[in-house]
């Protein structure tokens, strides 16, 4: 995935309008791009070509379903640890060795290690957290999601 900004001229005004509109839910109808194209004053074919181009230059990573992982079944939990600096690499190796560790970030804070556990069963979360504590000798704080708020996030292109 591209990690650096595209030059501003990579997207023209129509690309930007299309990208903003394509972040809204695609209608589930046989010709989903046609209605959207009308709104943008484009033909269906032109909109699809723009979308393919946006994907090609890396302005979007994909065009498809956004899944709610938890709704699929399975359990997820954000966890954090306070790892002493000299032990950091060793502890990261122990934590990352678990395939259930999906993401792991170093963050600038007293709690400097933040990772997500993804398990089949909610019971596995606390068991695995306890296992990581046993392996590292360090407490694992669990921050399960109690409520998810509706997200209005849109990248303005």
């Amino acid at each position: 995935m591209r990690r650096t900004p595209l030059p501003p001229e990579a997207l023209d005004a129509t690309d930007r309008a299309a990208l903003n509109a394509l972040q809204d839910p695609l209608p589930l109808v046989p010709r989903p791009f046609a209605a959207l194209a009308d709104r943008l004053g484009l033909t269906e074919a032109a909109l699809i070509a723009r979308l393919a181009h946006l994907r090609e230059i890396g302005a979007i990573t994909r065009f498809g379903p956004f899944l709610d992982a938890a709704a699929m079944g399975g359990a997820f939990c954000l966890c954090a640890m306070e790892v002493p600096g000299p032990r950091f690499d060793e502890v990261v190796t122990l934590v990352n060795a678990h395939p259930q560790v999906a993401h792991n970030y170093e963050r600038a804070h007293r709690l400097n290690l933040w990772f997500v556990l993804a398990c089949e069963d909610p019971k596995d979360i606390s068991r695995l957290a306890a296992q990581i504590t046993a392996e590292t000798g360090l407490p694992v704080l669990c921050f399960p999601k109690e409520r998810e708020f509706f997200i209005g996030f849109r990248v303005q292109a």
């Binding site: 995935m1 990690r3 695609l26 890396g58 302005a59 956004f66 899944l67």
Partner: peptide, 16 residues
Amino acid sequence: GIIRRIAAAPNHYALG
């Protein structure tokens, strides 16, 4: 709620 929506996933980094 298993699919939140079908849409473009913008690349934050590419878009600045």
